[in-house]
Simulated scan of single mutants.
Amino acid sequence: MQTMFVVFFIFISLFFGVWRRFNEWYSTLLFWIIGDLLYASLLHDFRVWEFHPVWVDHFILPTHTLISTAIAFFIYPSVIVVFLGRFPSSFFHRIGWIILWAVIFESIEIIAYVNKSIFHHYGWTLGWSFLITSLLFLY
């Protein structure tokens, strides 16, 4: 399941990403990756969400750590070059763009949740994920 998401976002970035301006967003990419790795290391024993391999993931991304690493190093760069590369200039279009990407991420998490590819712990819910994702795209 997670492998399919990685491949999906790589294809999206190849078709819609603005890779020529990648150096402008490099610091944003580092912020996302460092934040994700910091969460993974500090809360290793108290994860609020945990990835489990399903389908082909058992062969390609068989552990939570490998899935998280693939997300950080493949999905995040792919998302950033599309999200920031095509970021609108008008205020209302910006709001819509942020909401669209938050909904895309939430939809993917719902698909993963339904397929038992992600499990929530310690009171974490899909609602919390949507809030945090919205804030992540907002800043």
Rank of each mutant, 00 (worst) to 15 (best):
I99C: 00
F8E: 11
L42D: 04
L42R: 01
L100R: 00
W128Q: 11
T133W: 07
Y76V: 00
G123M: 04
L61Q: 02
F16A: 13
T65D: 14
D45V: 04
L138D: 03
G96M: 03
E50T: 13
T28D: 06
A72C: 11
S117F: 05
I33D: 01
V79D: 02
A112N: 15
L61I: 08
R21M: 09
P77I: 13
T28I: 11
I108R: 01
L42W: 07
V103G: 09
N23H: 13
Y26K: 14
F83R: 02
T125W: 08
F130M: 15
R20S: 04
F119T: 12
F105N: 04
F105R: 01
P53T: 05
V114F: 07
L100M: 15
A102K: 01
T63M: 13
L135P: 07
L30I: 09
W101I: 12
I75N: 00
T28N: 06
F92N: 13
T3K: 02
A70Y: 04
F130G: 12
G127V: 13
L135D: 09
H121Y: 15
L84H: 04
F9P: 02
R21E: 12
I80C: 01
L43Y: 08
F46L: 09
N115H: 08
L29A: 03
M1R: 00
V48Y: 08
V81E: 03
R20C: 03
S134R: 02
I111H: 03
G85A: 07
T63V: 06
L138S: 08
L136I: 10
F137N: 02
P62R: 01
S129V: 08
I118S: 07
H44A: 13
I34Y: 02
P62Q: 02
F91N: 09
G127W: 15
S41E: 11
W97C: 10
H120L: 13
